[in-house]
Computed example of a mutant assay.
Amino acid sequence: MNTVAAVVVFLGVLSLAAGQSCPRIVTRAEWGARAASTSVLPTFPPTHVVIHHTVTGACTTIAACSQIMRSMQNHHIDGNGWADIGYNFVVGGDGNVYTGRGWNRQGAHTVNFNSRSIGIAFIGTFTSGNPTAAAQNAAQQLIACGVAQGQIARNYRLMGHRQGAATACPGNTLFATIQRWPNWTSNP
């Protein structure tokens, strides 16, 4: 993991403090991912970050979150016929970030935005509650880390899945929460 800057949110602007790290990112090998081949992201760095929820049970340990990751990947590959899990990254209630397709890979998460976005999903259902504070902090750190490393455009637009498709995702409560995050846009 590269040393980059930590997130300091001040008046809705991300500031980067030197010497801090990216959040803990669990590799595909660590969570037991199947081998997959996905396309390189055509728009790089991506201009949008799309927030999702997985509509699964929640998890608070690496073992439990890894099991959910494997189950989602199996469903996305075997059930949906996709090349891999749809999301670029997935955040567990344990505050860890799980590598889905990873950086610079085209996801399968939001039609009309897949070629120009990074999809970040929270494990769980967030219609009437929010992800843990640790999970929310990890997601915001991941975005700041991506910007600092040039993996996400500095002027990216943050949006919820429902802004790009007819869906309730990322759940009413989480959707209201991300509207207070830096770079959220009502018009993606």
Rank of each mutant, 00 (worst) to 15 (best):
N2Q: 11
A5N: 15
A5H: 12
A6G: 15
V8E: 14
V9F: 09
G12C: 02
L14R: 13
L14E: 05
S15F: 14
S15Q: 08
Q20I: 11
C22K: 05
C22D: 08
I25E: 01
T27E: 00
A29G: 08
W31C: 07
G32K: 10
R34V: 07
R34T: 09
A35H: 10
T38V: 15
P42T: 09
P42H: 08
T43I: 15
P45T: 09
P45H: 06
P46L: 07
T47P: 00
H52E: 08
H52Q: 09
V55K: 14
G57F: 02
G57C: 04
A58H: 11
C59D: 08
T61L: 03
I62R: 14
I62P: 00
A63E: 14
A63F: 06
Q67L: 11
Q67P: 04
I68N: 04
M69H: 02
M69T: 01
M69E: 06
R70K: 15
S71A: 15
Q73K: 04
H76E: 12
D78R: 10
N80G: 00
N80D: 11
N80H: 13
N80E: 14
G81W: 08
G81T: 03
W82C: 01
A83N: 12
G86L: 10
N88I: 01
V90Q: 02
V90L: 07
V91D: 01
V91F: 02
G92R: 01
G95A: 10
G100F: 00
N104K: 12
Q106N: 03
A108C: 09
T110N: 14
V111I: 13
N112S: 13
N112L: 05
F113I: 01
R116M: 13
S117L: 07
S117N: 10
I118W: 03
I120F: 00
I120E: 00
I120N: 00
A121K: 02
A121V: 00
A121I: 01
I123W: 01
I123M: 15
I123F: 06
G124S: 03
T125D: 09
F126E: 02
S128Q: 12
G129I: 09
A133L: 12
Q136D: 05
Q136C: 12
Q136H: 09
N137I: 14
N137D: 15
A139Q: 07
Q140K: 14
Q141K: 08
L142K: 05
C145D: 10
G146E: 05
G146W: 02
A148V: 04
I152M: 06
R154V: 01
M159E: 08
G160E: 04
H161E: 14
R162V: 06
Q163G: 08
Q163E: 12
Q163N: 07
G164R: 03
A165T: 11
A166P: 06
A168H: 04
C169A: 12
N172P: 02
N172F: 10
L174F: 11
I178W: 06
I178E: 06
Q179S: 05
W181Y: 13
W181M: 11
W181S: 07
W181D: 11
W181I: 06
P182W: 04
T185N: 14
S186P: 11
S186C: 01
S186G: 15
S186L: 09
P188S: 10
